[in-house]
């Protein structure tokens, strides 16, 4: 009996080591890859992201003026994204409210395998208030190691002005409030 308990304790200890090891791996900063996006034609979106230029120009994602950036990977053809859209909109609202007195939080969406027209249709259908970009050939989806839609990549801006990835998940989040809290905590806020 004592032997059984001893073995069980050892096994439990081993199991505890697994997340500890994962945490240690997370400690090595994973930077958001460099990529560019077209400057939004809307002056409202330009102000939201802190970027300027003609809509024929591009900006680097690291130039987005934010302490915390959340990137949503979605598709107009993804039924789970449709179902999650209201909660994502709610999260955006919470992020906006948080930005008023706390860290500057920004969100963008990348439409995986979607044309600009399809992204616009998605935006119109679900009244999405944050900027969405088309990722027709899924270059950005692959670059960000997307593993299904919806997916989320949360980042914090480091002192060098570059975004570091702090959250990566595929699938819906449980609640907007919970995911906001997770973002803030992982960002050290």
């Amino acid at each position: 009996m004592i032997k059984t308990r001893l073995i069980t304790m050892v096994l439990a200890w081993v199991v505890c080591l697994v997340p500890c090891s994962a945490t240690a791996q997370q400690a090595a900063a994973k930077m958001l890859p460099d990529f560019t996006l077209p400057v939004p034609s809307s002056s409202e979106y330009q102000a939201y992201l802190g970027v300027t230029g003609a809509d024929t120009e591009e900006f680097n994602v690291h130039d987005i003026d934010a302490d915390i950036l959340l990137i949503e990977l979605f598709s107009m053809y993804c039924p789970y994204c449709h179902a999650a859209a209201p909660a994502v909109n709610e999260l955006y609202t919470l992020m906006q409210q948080t930005s008023q007195s706390g860290p500057r939080m920004r969100m963008i969406g990348l439409g995986a395998n979607n044309t600009r027209f399809e992204v616009d249709h998605y935006q119109h259908t679900f009244t999405v208030a944050f900027p969405l970009f088309a990722d027709k050939d899924m270059t950005l989806y692959r670059l960000l190691e997307g593993a299904g839609t919806p997916g989320f990549v949360g980042c914090r801006k480091n002192e060098d002005g570059k975004f570091e990835i702090i959250v990566q998940r595929s699938g819906e989040f449980d609640t907007p409030e919970g995911f906001l809290q997770e973002l803030l905590e992982r960002a050290g806020r």
Partner: peptide, 13 residues
């Protein structure tokens, strides 16, 4: 498997 779910957003159109 994604084409028809996408068309679910086209009812108004």
């Amino acid at each position: 498997s994604d084409q028809w779910p996408g068309y679910n957003l086209l009812e108004q159109m």
